[in-house]
Amino acid sequence: MEHILDLKKEIDELSDDSLIKRFNQKPVNEGEFNYYPVFAKRIKKYKKLLFEELISERNVKIEFRTFKPSWYIAISILDYCEDEKIISEMIQHIKNHWDKDDYNDFAHYISKEERFKKYF
């Protein structure tokens, strides 16, 4: 299966401890976004972090003309999480916390990917 997002080798090879340690050092040298697919791949350990990041104000409320990190995190989970139950939970989670329009826009955005479309 071809993934939407790349896993950066240098991040993917980090131990769990190093991963979280380096993610928490701001700014993140390798780019914060590149950590999310790795977290998603190891979602059993990082579910809480990802779910918090999904609805954290800094990722949802964006002041500038940039892509919403919350969308990227959700896509990381859809792309790398293999646990259908967690994916369903994640969808319910964002549905409960994101603005209705935001959620609908997101659902429209990912609808081009058959693999994701089925969840919405």
Partner: peptide, 15 residues
């Protein structure tokens, strides 16, 4: 100023 703010935002998340 907008660009500066966006720059700060982006570089706050990556280098």
């Amino acid at each position: 100023l907008n660009f500066k703010n966006e720059l700060e935002y982006l570089t706050g998340r990556g280098k």
